[in-house]
Amino acid sequence: MDHMPENWGRPRSEIYGVYNSAIHNAGPATHTQQPSITGTSVIALKYNKGVMLAADNLASYGSLARFTDQERLIKVGKETVVGISGDVSDMQYIELLLERLIIEDNYEQDGHNLRAPHIYEYLSRVMYNRRSKVDPLWNAILVAGKKDDGSPFLAYVDLLGVTYSSPSIATGFGAYLAVPLLRKIASDDGDEKKITEEQARAAIDECMKVLFYRDARSLDKYSVATVTTDGEVTIEQNVRCKDMSWRFAEHIHGYGTQKM
């Protein structure tokens, strides 16, 4: 019997050599300095009966299209959808937090359910607190649902804890490519009242197509979620970009088989 506790539970020296104690005090604790596997834009806009949002199914590892069926729109509680871009492992951790949140809220069974504004506030606190520890969750998040008064709710929070809301929002590349298109129909508060579900869907599909054209970390397969002000949530999966035309590529140097 070895009576030295420090030797217990370690690889046996006679087989593996003497344990190198430098291993367990190798440097300071490290925090996320950069994302690794990432999801690209999430886009969303309000319309007359709720909020519609979309995110493609790609999880990239740098420029490698690593996973091509990653779902990034998450239903939270009964009538909220959260769309997450950025680091996928952090996204999965946020999913865990939200699942725990909803389960614990349901324990009470008292008729009170967390809705979009409440889930949004909770996420904002989590994101800001993590950034304040300089250990951020590397994501930009959209929260969609309905407000206490029954009108559509849409808001943004990111790894810095920065928050804002607007009738149309997009994260990542979508902020440059999709927002100008979405703002054509939903620019100011109240504009959403004039937008039908069909118009909203057409705008979302158009934006996802444009993003697939120009965002090199995107995919032509995506999910579209709607949250209505009646509290109904639908997530349509495996939607494909339609009616694409790559003819513009013929004139762009660097595409296809052109010679120098």
Binding site: D110, H112, L114, P117, H118, Y120, R125
Partner: peptide, 12 residues
């Protein structure tokens, strides 16, 4: 109010 932006349910 700080964490959930919600008036606390009375029963809770």
């Amino acid at each position: 109010r700080m964490i959930y932006n919600r008036p606390i349910p009375i029963s809770r």
